[in-house]
Design a protein around this nucleic acid. Structure first.
Lengths: 196, 196, 196, 196
DNA sequence: AGGTAAACGAGACGGTACGTCGCGTCTTTCA
DNA sequence: TGAAAGACGCGACGTACCGTCTCGTTTACCT
């Protein structure tokens, strides 16, 4: 009789409601594990134990460890971080700065190791790399419209060269990845390397 | 002075030598499994059973499934296949042709998903991508010496753009990977994209 | 005061309880294998396969094959079988009848081959032989109280002679094990073998 | 011409003879391992490594680890140790002294855990326990002939009681095994336990 | 003295079983 | 009635030993 239970809303929550704190604890545990032992060795068992959560609670939201890892990687601060879209060089600097970290490397790893089927992979790829590529495309198109870039340029190829170089150094680590790469890439692309 | 036997080779094998036929059977089984179900689901148990071999025989040579997969991917006929080094375009065509296959995709996947430590990874990366990059470097240096390429060009950045574009398309599959990419890349790089 | 629940039982089971049917299937499979190929060649893999059960399910309850074998040997109907305690001869007859079977022999084997440390071994030894010895002790003490047995008798030695003879024949099989042994043993013990 | 080598024996040994030192090293290694980790965990691999010997050298002489363990247990000083056969009590004292050691316990364990088929088991059983039982039989028969023991005594049962008691305590360790057991057993047997 | 044949050390081989880890699903009890 | 706890069937892991099989190397006998 204490509970008024009037006609508040059509929220037909019977029984125990989903715990928002569990969700957060899971993501936090996953992120901690990612930091400590990397994405390859993240396990659902491990996350459940660390989060103080039952395994089914995890599976209710994510289908497997890969999805959970992706969610944990993109979950956090990135809503706050917007890419700088003023110029290509500024954009690349934002991207390199974001990727050239432990977490960035893990993102690239997940991206590269997952087989490119499935919604989640695409969403992840979009967030991590293709969004930036799209931003770059818009910058280049703007410049092309302004007559700063030759009209017969294959922008897709150009963009893939720029972002491919970043990915390559991120994954193979055969050369340092820093803003210098962006600068050199843009210089070479803009002015060409052939002697005329 | 009894045993002159100068610096011929450190071949000091005692005991029964490793069986070449078992080795071959293992590699063959691994390659078959890679073809059928992919590198992620290749298991040592499966390879052992298929090759008619005990698991320890596999572990005696490879430390885990990843190493075995790498060995199986680079093992075979491709030693005989030399890259065309006449020109950048011809080189890229060789590389794209070789990578743009099921096996090539698997190679890129392994490259991307393995963490870049350990001898075997480096050897694998060399065979799969860095060797081609080195060949490309030599071509560009030749052209630079001939005065066909500007002397202030950062060749490392240029090469990473070219090979990065290939890897990116191989892994993300957001755009088709074909000879066109090579052609467009080279055109953009040689002539620049800026309007002067 | 909320949880009175005084000292009823420490039964504080959370989570899914162990499956009684799996447990039963495991014991049944183990018993079948014991019958067919003996305790030395009983393997966890074999039991798991035969019981249609995962190996971890077995290991969750028993630490190794030896423990499982012991459990399988004592598990079954013999809880219902009470030893006849009316007289020593009747008791020995019960025991010999029970031990002088395939399963009895296996029990003796396990007893003899297990190293006598650990709870489970002691429980097993109790069930298989020491319980009977204890029953025998009570009978002899009763007779001693009645003045039928000399008061200076070392009952422990007497009991070990009786049960030792049974074990010896069970293990070495150098002489037949039958009720005759019990009768002869008792006769010799009661009346002595020396000529006075 | 130094070696007469007349028609001594049909020993047609061609090729390299078996190495006595290897044999000794194997037995020594086996004995060391028995001391350290017991008969259950003795392995051929371990003995071979410890003895600095190839596995086939071991298998050339013993068929499996059990045979080797038996050989190692009976190999040594026991040629020098003769059982005292003057009286039952002296005999039992010898036997208990010999068995109530680490090595003696291991002998009993091997005896009890091996399934009683096969030549080697019988030979081992003879050496370890049945020889002593036979000696005891002779003593009792001598006493029976002298009229010191009742003629209607079932000597087999009596002997199995005595030696069974020893085995039982050796294996189960539920009571101490010492000379006292021999003394109490003999007393009980000779004089009977019943009040007349 | 030289051959030859067996035993040697070493260690790889095809197997079998081990005991563990993680998967994704299920069945309880508790809140 | 959702969530923690945790057992379940399953499959693979990487290791330990088994008993057998090459290897190249002694080490004796027998021409």
């Amino acid at each position: 009789m204490s509970k008024a239970k009037s006609a508040s809303g059509p929220k037909k929550t019977v029984g125990r409601p989903k715990s928002a704190s569990s969700h957060a604890a899971i993501i936090a545990a996953a992120r901690a594990i990612l930091d400590e032992i990397g994405p390859n060795r993240l396990t659902i068992d491990g996350v459940a134990k660390r989060a103080g959560v039952g395994k089914p609670t995890i599976y209710r939201t994510w289908a497997n460890a890969q999805e959970l890892a992706m969610a944990a990687l993109v979950a956090p601060e990135d809503t706050a971080v917007a890419l700088n879209q003023d110029s290509m060089e500024a954009l690349l600097e934002s991207i390199i700065t974001r990727l050239n970290t432990k977490r960035g490397h893990q993102m690239a790893l997940m991206l590269a190791s997952a087989e490119p089927d499935g919604e989640l992979f695409k969403a992840f790829a979009n967030r991590v790399i293709l969004k930036g590529r799209q931003d770059g495309l818009e910058i280049l198109q703007r410049q092309m419209a302004l007559g700063q870039i030759r009209a017969d340029t294959n922008l897709a190829a150009v963009l893939d060269m720029i972002f491919g170089a970043i990915m390559l150094r991120l994954l193979l680590r055969h050369e340092a990845l820093d803003i210098g790469l962006a600068r050199e890439s843009l210089a070479a692309l803009l002015d060409g390397i052939a002697v005329h």
